[in-house]
């Protein structure tokens, strides 16, 4: 289904959304799921590899305190957003 037409997709899929602009560097994702997540020198979350089985990301998503990791309905992911969310006034 990867790269396929979203219209008429047979089953709903889940996407891991990584918003680096929301990351506060708590490191919970790296601590709980080190083979999937890392931190860059500046302390923000990095995804070590793709594709991601969203099940293996679920613990880290739950632990993430800032909303930088979330699961969203949609086509196969992940989506990494490098935008600085503070400009938008996250909340």
């Amino acid at each position: 289904m990867e790269g396929g037409d979203p219209v008429g997709a047979e089953e709903p899929t889940t996407t891991l959304v990584v918003s680096r602009g929301l990351c506060i560097g708590a490191g919970q994702c790296v601590l709980s799921t080190p083979d999937l997540f890392d931190q860059s020198e500046d302390g923000r979350v990095l995804l070590r590899r793709q594709p991601v089985d969203t099940e293996e990301a679920r613990v880290a998503v739950d632990l993430c305190p800032s909303g930088a990791l979330r699961l969203a309905a949609g086509r196969s992911g992940p989506v990494v957003d490098d935008q600085d969310a503070t400009a938008k006034g996250w909340g």
């Binding site: 506060i24 560097g25 490191g27 601590l31 931190q39 020198e41 500046d42 302390g43 923000r44």
Partner: peptide, 11 residues
């Protein structure tokens, strides 16, 4: 916070 977190990573 982001000016500081580089000093507080797991590494």
């Amino acid at each position: 916070r982001r000016m500081l977190i580089g000093d507080f990573t797991l590494r």
